[in-house]
């Protein structure tokens, strides 16, 4: 891949988001500070959980348990923070670490396929969430809402997303981040160059679990309560946000900015339909179409060119690349 294409790989999601944003502005004939704030606050939990997914996908893994981990983290926070603020903050983070350790040890030490391990732990965390908090409830004092960056000032929401990008970018600049991407790019080569493969993988799952827990805490603060099923909708959406953000599931490449853009894109399609006065039923069609457009345009062009050049029988049909 040439350097020019690498640069484009980073700017694609920004471009898609910019276009969608302009369409919304045009439809609404303006975009107030309130709209900006609510867009950012709505996208923030998805951005956090998707960044967790991103770290894991970079190392060529996938984690379907991040959504339910977020549910449990939010539920624990909502139940404890009023009486014991320290437990309410530390508990969810520890839950994220524990979840990451369980997944990471299974994947890195036992070499089990990530998708099936996290499918099993997904079910376990969904069950734990129902035991911790059978019905939506609990309470998070409104004072904490200032921390989520959305409610005191409109631009705090934007600042929150920028902070996520910077922190995630910083992590990728550490030695851990380098090893993470080396691992996703070519595992045998990374192993031969001295990367401690299983330790880095474990680290990726733990970091992913913590980010998911932070996403759950954000949700709890933003809604002032917890819910045992609130995270379920993020299970596959976080994967979609990562892919729309320009990160291949084969790992090794991608930027935090792209992932946050992926989260914003999936959030803004809702407003787009609302302001275009189209039924929200169409939202998932648009999300699916964007997902396919992002991953498929390049190869679709190749395919059409093959068809045009060789008639209905592309010569390399079925040939593994």
């Amino acid at each position: 891949m040439s350097i020019r294409r690498l640069q484009f790989a980073g700017s694609g999601p920004v471009l898609v988001f910019a276009v969608l944003f302009l369409v919304v502005v045009a439809l609404k004939q303006g975009f107030s500070a309130f709209d900006l704030r609510s867009l950012c606050v709505n996208a923030a939990p998805l951005a956090l959980i998707a960044l967790g997914q991103f770290v894991i996908v970079l190392a060529r893994g996938i984690d379907l348990s991040l959504g339910p981990v977020a549910s449990v983290a939010g539920a624990v926070m909502a139940l404890t923070i009023t009486d014991h603020p320290a437990v309410g903050i530390a508990g969810p983070v520890l839950i994220g670490i524990a979840a990451g350790l369980a997944n990471g040890l299974s994947v890195a030490q036992l070499r089990l396929p990530p998708i099936i391990v996290t499918l099993a732990t997904m079910s376990i965390w969904q069950g734990i969430a129902l035991l911790v908090l059978p019905d939506p409830g609990g309470e998070v004092p409104a004072a904490y809402q200032a921390l989520t960056g959305g409610f005191s000032s409109p631009f705090m929401g934007v600042a929150g997303l920028v902070v996520f990008c910077l922190v995630a970018g910083w992590i990728l600049r550490t030695r851990f981040g380098l090893h993470l991407r080396a691992l996703g790019g070519d595992e045998p080569a990374a192993r031969l160059s001295g990367v401690r493969v299983s330790r880095v993988k474990l680290g990726a799952y733990v970091l992913g679990g913590v980010l998911a827990a932070l996403g759950g805490m954000y949700l709890a603060v933003a809604t002032s309560s917890g819910s045992p099923t609130v995270g379920d909708s993020y299970i596959l959406t976080s994967v979609a946000a990562v892919v729309i953000g320009g990160v291949p599931l084969s790992g090794g490449r991608g930027t935090p900015l792209g992932v946050v853009m992926g989260a914003l894109i999936l959030t803004i399609t809702g407003s787009l339909l609302y302001f275009a006065d189209v039924s929200s039923f169409y939202q998932s069609i648009i999300d699916g179409a964007i997902l396919l457009a992002v991953v498929g345009t390049g190869s679709a062009r190749d395919w059409l060119r093959d068809i045009a050049r060789m008639g209905p029988w592309p010569s390399r049909t079925g040939q593994p690349s």
């Binding site: 994967v239 979609a240 599931l249 039923f281 998932s284 699916g288 997902l291 396919l292 991953v295 395919w303």
Partner: peptide, 19 residues
């Protein structure tokens, strides 16, 4: 033909069918 990974392809089709 488009060489999209099966997870992404079927996830997108699932969304489209949902809508």
């Amino acid at each position: 033909k488009l060489r999209i990974s099966p997870i992404v392809m079927t996830l997108a089709m699932n969304n489209i069918m949902l809508g």
